[in-house]
């Protein structure tokens, strides 16, 4: 399988006042195209930092980071933004839906701001994604009228509107109960199966990772364990 993410000896150190705080220590890991990968670990283990690096939101302190062949760490802020717009979809723990926009408008937003897609095409894409995520009948509702699971479904649809190569989800189930969390993860897997997009997500809840292909366990900025999951 082709590698879509390559991390070689990646370290990330934050400066907190006079003190250097290492968030990631010499991480080396590859992620193949179309896989459904999870990083698990407790809070502060470096999951979010790692996803931020893969998502080209941040740059490593040292090491080589390649996403879809591009060394994103060497790109300028503007080029990283373009790269994200073309290649990465994001799902956030707090959903980050815009409260004053409807479900439809929230999903449409990236197409307006990032891709400048013509109206007819926008309608087609948004409706198709809302249908796949089971939210088409809720498209006129506002986020405040939705349950947590529904909000995250909308967020999944929004992450896929720009047809990204990778979808990154940072703790997408942290604010959901177990059943809803499992349903959201299943939806993400279903979307992966249908679109072939690589899904990478982080969680501290080991119970919901049963459906993933690979689990990397992080602790104190180090990958302690990587295991492939065989689905029987």
């Amino acid at each position: 399988m082709n590698k879509i993410v390559e991390l070689k000896n990646i370290s990330k150190i934050y400066r907190a006042g006079e003190v250097d705080v290492p968030a990631l220590k010499d991480i080396t890991v590859d992620i193949n195209k179309g896989t459904f990968v999870s990083f698990i670990g407790p809070s502060g283990s470096g999951k979010t930092t790692l996803l931020n690096l893969i998502g080209a939101l941040d740059t490593p302190t040292s090491g080589i980071l390649k996403v879809d062949g591009a060394e994103t760490g060497r790109l300028s802020t503007k080029k990283r933004a373009i790269f994200r717009g073309e290649n990465i979809g994001f799902i956030f723990q707090d959903f980050n839906l815009i409260s004053v926009l409807t479900v439809y408008e929230n999903v449409e937003y990236p197409l307006l701001m990032v891709k400048e897609t013509p109206r007819e095409e926008r309608v087609k894409i948004v409706n198709a994604l809302l249908e796949k995520t089971g939210m088409l009948d809720q498209k006129a509702k506002y986020p405040s009228q939705l349950s947590g699971g529904q909000k995250q479904r909308v967020a999944v649809a929004r992450a896929l509107t720009t047809s990204p190569r990778i979808v990154l989800a940072d703790e997408p189930t942290a604010n959901l109960d177990h059943d809803t969390a499992f349903m959201v993860i299943s939806l993400m897997k279903k979307m992966r199966d249908e679109s072939g997009v690589t899904f990478i997500f982080s969680t501290h809840d080991p119970k919901i990772v049963g459906v993933v292909d690979i689990i990397h366990t992080l602790e104190d900025g180090i990958i302690m364990k990587s295991e492939e999951v065989t689905h029987g």
Binding site: G55, T77, A81, G85, I88, D94, N96, M113
Partner: peptide, 20 residues
């Protein structure tokens, strides 16, 4: 702020946010 963060994360160029 959070919305701007989301917009930036999904790849909206700084110029567009400024223009908005």
């Amino acid at each position: 702020i959070k919305e701007i963060g989301t917009l930036t994360a999904i790849g909206t160029l700084p110029g567009k946010i400024r223009t908005m």
